[in-house]
Write a protein that binds this DNA or RNA. Sequence first.
RNA 1: GUGGGUGUAGCUCAGCUGGUCAGAGUGCCGGGUUGUGGCCCCGGAGGUCGAGGGUUCGAACCCCUUCACUCACCCCA
Length: 420
Amino acid sequence: MEKITAIRGFKDILPRDASVFREVESIARQVFTSFGFKEIRVPIIEKTELFKRSIGETTDIVEKEMYTFADRDNENITLRPEATASVIRAYIEHNMSAAEQITKLFTIGPMFRRERPQKGRFRQFNQIDVELFGDDKPQSDAEVIFMLMHFLISAGLNSLQLEINSLGCNSCRPLFSKAIVDFLKGSEKNLCPDCQRRIHTNPLRVFDCKVETCAATIAQAPVILDFLCDNCKDHFGQVKSFLNDLEMPFVINARMVRGLDYYTKTAFEVKTNALGAQNAVAGGGRYNGLVSFLGGPEVPGIGFAVGFERLVACLPEDENNNFKTDLFIAALGAKAQKIAFGLTNRLRVAGISAEMDYADKSLKAQMKRADKLNSSFALIFGDKEIEEKQVLLRNMQTKNQQTVPLDGLLESIIKIIKER
RNA sequence: GUGGGUGUAGCUCAGCUGGUCAGAGUGCCGGGUUGUGGCCCCGGAGGUCGAGGGUUCGAACCCCUUCACUCACCCCA
């Protein structure tokens, strides 16, 4: 038989990694909760229209990376490529803006993008997504960014670089776009084919291009920060000032553009050197027009996403075995096996991780298994112990062995292990 | 979608210009102790050398095709 493998870009998270994931998740929940964010869980499939409208028709994500297919009734549905759109949809659908002025939400789960996989990039990947609705004060920007950094550091990351920028708003960004287009048109011949196309579709993206001639050309180009309107300029200034108050170091990357169209004003990215080419571990920004653009009220928002796999990839490898067993029961002979089977399962019910071997192997083999399972104790008994009505309890670290009466064995063991 | 690299035991890999080339380490199982783990010693199981085709007396090795993995571009978390 030919074996069936997971599909390209989809990864199994093996037990070792799963426990790391769980740890990071629990740190995230704890940090976000302190900052007043509440968990929301949303579907991983939405109507295609939702992503087209929110992310932008001409973005790479929508143009070529979405898993979109027709449902049985021919409605187009899409595996979510990011979470913000879904969270906003839910925010609107449940009228959350009416219930409270400020709504702080986070969600954790898988996203799907049909890209060519490489280091730090998969077709199914997990994100921790945070959104804050209902406040457009620069403090919100600083709070969210500060929380993000605090979370990443708490999770164990170091040598992170926080980059921020302002992308302007509907009144000032068009002026900048026009200036860019004018500038690029003058030096069109120096640009790569992709960028020549981008001039017409999404001029800001040219800033991201790594082709040498493009980079050289764009180096002379005007930067958005010189075009910000008074409102945006003031907002950005205050964001920086509040970050300084929080002693949060950052660098300004005036050429940072994000791959999603909906961002306004503040945009930010967190980079690390531990990831190869995919060096962004988190990214986000403000999206003041998006909620209304998706059919909701005029509510400002800001949020970010953390790449779970990328975060975990930055963590130092933990070589030691974290899986532990409280007790291994080494039973010798049919009689002992029968008692051990009941004992093992009753201990489990009592919350003690217990294992035994059903194959009636030699004591040596069973002790090996106990060692392999990282067991704290081994319970040894065979015909001799049954006859003497007491069993041997061995502490695997200290090698001390004590006898425990067969009478009331279950309770005695629970007591010993829990008191340890 | 485009380019480079790599596919040999569960894992990490060696295998020179085609001629004992089916190997090592590790892991697994067993034994050394008729009832005691880690260290040590000994033994064993496990691979149609990614798949298909071709060249040749002979292919893990050369050629073609294909698939997978991987890194990078694009883009993003």
